[in-house]
Amino acid sequence: MVYLYQSILTPLKSSVEHETDECCGFLFGAEIGENRIISMIMKAENDALDRRRTFRISPKNYLAAENFATWNNLQLIGIYHSHPNSPAVPSELDRIAAQPYFSYVILSVMNKKVEAIRSWHLNSQFQLEEEPLFVLNINKDVYGYRNHPNPAA
């Protein structure tokens, strides 16, 4: 399961909202047994030619993220990117480029607002499979983001 600290939910959403291009970045945190806890995000430059519909992170920026994780005793947990005006479901392009181990968090942005956040990982059949994503709040309240997007609800 993937847990996202509530404290990074706002920066994560802010990093993709109000953008017409796809946005992307890195997810850092820790892995404890089967669980992954995302405690930090880092927005990356979208290096794709068609940024409206695709994203690409340069090898140089990828290596910088690996080094950042090592130097800060963090784990590079995965990648996030937005789908402007599209659902938070991986495309064939997402699947082809997906790497083992990583969690791929996709944010659906409708009318410049985040409508859904879902996480996916590559399974042994090289298909992207959804993994449960929860928001972890410092008051020990854990809730599924998809089912209860509003913690006050």
Binding site: Y62, L63, A97
Partner: peptide
């Protein structure tokens, strides 16, 4: 020698 995975993707309508 650095092995660097390509990090890329796109929205569903980019399907070939």
């Amino acid at each position: 020698v650095s092995i660097v995975p390509a990090i890329a993707g796109g929205a569903p309508s980019t399907k070939a």
